[in-house]
Every structure is written in C-alpha cells, then in structure tokens.
Design a protein around this nucleic acid. Structure first.
Lengths: 346, 346
DNA sequence: TTTTTTTAATTAACCGTTTAATTTAGCTAA
DNA sequence: TTAGCTAAATTAAACGGTTAATTAAAAAAA
C-alpha cells in the first residue's frame, strides 16, 4: 500500500505549513481566498484524502457505531442490520458489524474491541445464553451510549427497542382460541431469555383468559433454530400430545416443526393451525405459517439507531426504557394472499 | 461519555512515564517483572482499555476492512456478509459495513469514506448500474487491496470471487433441454452487469448446443428484484410467448414471475419448469423453484475475505484473477426433497 | 580498581490532524 | 507619529500511543 498524501505534503509543495493547509481545506477565515484556492487545487491534484484516524484522535469523534448481533445470515437479523445501516448512514455514521454467534464470550470480546476502537455507541442484541453482565455494568459506568434491540437485558439502565412479545403472543394465541382451537402446543424459547419468557407468558395469559389451564406438558423449551423446532415437535409426539394448533417461538422453529410433521404424518399440516413469530421474507409465496406475527426488522433497527444517535449527539440520558415497535398479525389464506388480522373484528 | 483512562493516568498513579506503562503492558523486556505486575494491576483496577485509534496512527494498521454491498436485507447478501465477517474475525479483523443500495454514487462515497477511515482493504460487490471506474483506478494506483465478489468490474487489475455464472447457466439450461423443454424463456439481468451478461450467455450457448436458435423475443432484460420478475413475466404474456420453461436470473425475479403466473393462470405453475439462480434460505420447505443453482454465499464471502487478507498481510500482488467458487445444481421434487442433480447421469 | 556490560528506566520524536497562542506586516484612526 | 487593529500566516501544544535514542545506576569483567 502506497503512502498516502498528508497535509504536510501539500504544505511543502506550496511553501506553507500544515496548519495553514488544514485551515484552508476547512475554509477557516484565517486563510486568504487566493491561498485556499491554490491549496484545494493541489489537494485534489495529488489526491489528498483526510486521515480520519488522525482527525478522530483530536476530536474524539469517530462517527462510528458498533453493532453486535447473534446471527447475520437470517432474514430478521439482516433486516435489522439494514435498518440500522440506513439510518446511521443518513446521519453520517458508519457501522462496525460484529457477530456473536450466540456466544456470550464472543459477545463480550466484540464489545471490548468496539470500545477500544472508540465507537461512539453500541447497538446490541444479546445472545441467548448471555448471563454475565459485568461488561454492561462497565459500559454504563463509562457512560458509553448503548441501546439494546430485539433481545435485551432488563434493569441495566439502557434503553431497549423491542416488539411487545407478550402482548402480541397473547393476541395471536387469543385469535387462535376464538377461531376454535383448544389444544394449543407451544415450542418455546428458553425462559431466561426475554423473547422466550415473554412469548410464553402471552401464550399462557391468552389460555387462562379463555378459561383454559396451561398444560406444562404441551410446552417444550428450546433453542430458536430449525433443528430445535424439529426436535421439539418430535418430543411432543413422544409425549403423545394431541393438538389442534402449534405456536412456535420463531419462524425457523416453525419450519423445523413443519418438516417434522411432514415426516410423521403430512395430514397434520392441514389439521394443525400454525402460528409463529417472524417472517421468512417470502410472504405471499408459501401458505406457511398460516398465522404469523410480523417482526418489523427494519423498523426496529431504525428506531434503535435513532435512539442511540440522539443519545450520542444530544447527550440525552438513557432511561432504562422499553420502546415498543408495533407488530402486525398476518394470516396467509389458501390463495396465498396475506392479510392483516383485525382483532377488533375477531 | 466519561473520559477514558490513558497510559498517562496509570503513569501518574505509579510515578512512572507513559512509555514505561506502554512497555509494561506489552511485556517489553525493558521493564522489570515487579513493575509489570504493579502496572497491570493498576491498569485493570481503573479499567484501562487501549485506544486503538491512537495505536493505529503510529502503526498505520487498523485491523479493519471495508465492505460495500448493494443490499443487505436479502438472503444471499446476508450469507456473504456472514462469511466475510466470520473469516475476517478469525484473523483478527473487524468489518465496516456499508450498503450502496444499487446506487453507484453512494458506492463511490462509501469507498471514499472507508479509505479515509484507513481500512486496510476493501471488499466490494458493485451495484448494477456502476459504470464509472475512476475511483477504482485511484484505488489501484494507491495500491489499496481490493477484492470484488459476486459482481465485479473486469480488467481493472483486481481479483474477483464469483461463481461461474456462464458455466452454471449453461449446464442448468442444458439439463432443462435434456428433460424435454424446448421453449425456454429468460428473465435476464442487464447486459452491462456481469451476472446478467454471463447467465444469458450460458443460456444461449446451451440452446445453440442443442440446436435451438435463441429467440430474442423470449428474453426480457431487467432488474434483479421481485418487481422486475413480475413485470417481466407480464411482458412475456403481452408478447404472446409460449414457453415450457422459464429461467430467471435471480431468485427474487423468479418469485415475481411466480406471483404473476398465479395471477394470470395458476395452471402454468405446473406446466412451466422453473429455474433460477439463488436460494431462498427455505430449502426443502417450498417446491419452488423446481430447479435452482445454489449460490454458496458464505463460501464466496469467506474466499473473498481470504484473498483480501492474504493481500493485506502477505503483500501478495493482485492478479486480475477470477476465482470461481463452485455451485451446485439442485432439484426440488414433489416430496419437497432437495437433491443435487448429477450432470454426468442426465 | 577501572572499564565494560546489563538492567530499568527516561527523554525525544513521531504518526496526521486540530485548536490555541503568537508573530509579522500592513492599515487605520487618534 | 504612534498606538491599536486586522489579515494571514506561523509556532506550540495536544490527542494517545509507539519506537528510537539516551541516561543512570548496578553488576560483571578486565
């Protein structure tokens, strides 16, 4: 890699000092118009590009935010990252993207290295297994702006942008019950992770509200991936659970259960109503899942980035707030048409 | 944001100079073991984290690579980015992710700002409309390592990691012909973009090789998105084109055409064999497209990152080489089973 | 004992840029 | 005429870290 042109290079060519060049390029009033013109000409002639690293050192601004996601090669994560990227970019920031791969240790390392890189703020979606909060306490003490999105750790003093998992799950399961389902199984996430806990709570509340006592045997706790859905459904079969509906904690889990059903007894696919959180990005193409809670990934990303940048630029203090991004409840009918379910009518 | 601890802060507390602290923390032999111990204790006590920005200024290494993709919220892009991220990370690099949104002007700006940020190399997938190569010429002159992936600009002196679009298209279309298809329409990409041009070439070569003269009326050039596929198919209908197979340049285009078919005459879905490049990430769930060329996104990302990092670290000169990542040709049968098609047998 | 070597620090200089404090000459006003 | 001001540049210092060169004291060799 060739050595890049610096202020000094321009200065030498013009018999000026680097300070004058710096000022000239930034249209500082100290410099005469004639000189500014000459400086700019030479600058573009030799292809000068300011070294932002050096500039950052004096300004202690890097115009950079760090992002930590558990996965990236999944529709939802990619949507969120797209939302973050676009919004941050519109405000002149650039994102450094890291992936924890659901590994808390890696998550911590990424945060450390992002902080070392002097990112001005962090957007974090915590990995499923994250328990240790030491690093987050440190972040808070150092008053480094941080916003959680999608998956968060409560009571740490940071803002979080999430969907109303409990409310949406409750409404969705409620809708199933009103449509006649009684025996609704649930492939759940782990209880110590917010989305797992909240969605399960919503599920149980909906059942109780309609006079159905939740049966712990109908709930399988597990991971959020396709494998887990496959195994979960097999386990339900092993337990001899009868069901007329199945609520999967995520779209991939739903897919896994779908594959398991097809293997076991394809007729179940028509008999069992399927409900899942998430969106495959292939809306209107496949009639599956029948019902789903659409997670507005881009919107979550956008909102999280907005909160973070406001905190960075306006020095607004974090509030330990949960900001809810509204979801929509969608139904795919037999004509592949996707329509929003209006709860007021059901 | 609180002021972070620096070497000087530690130095003062111990009545030493910052240089000694710097050396102690990096286990430099100049410093006695006793002192090293004390320094490290104080460092961790006050939560010292090295400022990588400052370190970069002296070392002119940022351990950072810049990535420019046209889109991120799409399965393939997300896969590639995942591959890049993982590999770069394994070699101690971090990625700065930017999105051009298929806008050449934005692409140029992102590259400029990444260079200003002193990334050590660039991974770029050019936007569909990119024609202007001035910035790339400058990058080459400055000898900044750059590797194109997926979509590239030829003859600029950079390495590119791609799939063999022409070869794969030729084999795939050839397979359709051997299965009995004669009237194969093509929803193509633009001719000035490598994937569009190459895939179309493969399509035409396959036809010619089997004694079918390509009919330009059966090819619609367009974008690579779902809308374009929808419009393209409608246009084929308007032209009164009869077909027994349809080759779509990308998966989204295929989906768009699928929706258009369903609207026009659902029976076509069974009558017309569908072939597309790409992968929805829902393999084995939907029986569509019937045939597809799997683009190994993660592998492309990994390989591109590997070439780039070798160039960065080993100062291997770029070779203006095309590196092909192998694809697989897959068929989804009526049981939703996905199998690889072995061309030797067909 | 004197000289040389080793140890463990220190000071100086630099990376590329910015901000603050000075300088110099030319100009204006009293 | 001379103090005071303005314009346009300069020098000094800083950001946080690193490397190179230097010093001082203690230890080893002559």
């Amino acid at each position: 890699m060739k050595k890049r042109a610096t202020l000094n290079d321009i200065a030498q060519r013009l018999n000026l000092t680097k300070v004058s060049i710096s000022k000239a390029l930034r249209d500082h009033p100290d410099i005469s118009e004639a000189t500014k013109k000459r400086v700019k000409e030479v600058a573009s002639e030799i292809g000068y590009r300011p070294n932002l690293i050096a500039r950052s050192l004096t300004s202690s601004k890097t115009q950079t935010i760090g992002v930590v996601v558990p996965k990236i090669a999944h529709s939802f994560s990619a949507q969120v990252v797209a939302g973050i990227q676009r919004y941050a970019n519109s405000r002149g920031f650039v994102i450094v993207l890291t992936v924890s791969d659901e590994n808390p240790e890696l998550e911590r390392k990424h945060i450390e290295s992002l902080v070392s890189m002097q990112v001005e703020g962090l957007l974090v979606s915590v990995s499923m297994a994250t328990r240790e909060t030491e690093i987050y306490n440190w972040i808070r003490e150092m008053q480094i702006p941080l916003v959680f999105f999608d998956r968060y750790i409560p009571d740490l003093g940071f803002n979080s942008v999430v969907i109303d998992d409990r409310g949406a799950a409750k409404e969705a399961v409620g809708h199933l019950i009103k449509s006649g389902c009684r025996k609704i199984a649930h492939l759940a996430g782990y209880n110590h992770v917010s989305i797992g806990r909240q969605r399960r709570q919503g599920y149980e509340e909906a059942l109780r509200e309609h006079g159905i006592e939740p049966d712990p045997r109908m709930v399988i706790e597990g991971d959020v991936g396709e494998d887990s859905g496959y195994r979960g459904f097999k386990e339900l079969q092993a337990r001899n659970i009868e069901m007329d509906a199945l609520f999967s904690v995520t779209f991939p889990v739903g897919l896994g259960s779908y594959v398991a059903m097809r293997e076991t007894d394809p007729s179940m696919i028509d008999r069992i109503e399927m409900l899942a959180f998430g969106d495959s990005g292939i809306r209107g193409i496949v009639p599956y899942p029948h019902f789903y809670v659409e997670q507005p990934g881009k919107e979550i990303g956008r909102k999280a980035a907005e909160l973070l940048l406001d905190e960075i630029e306006g020095s607004v203090k974090p509030e330990n707030q949960l900001v809810y991004v509204p979801t929509r409840f969608l139904e795919t009918n037999s004509d592949f048409q996707v329509t929003e379910v209006d709860f007021n009518k059901s």
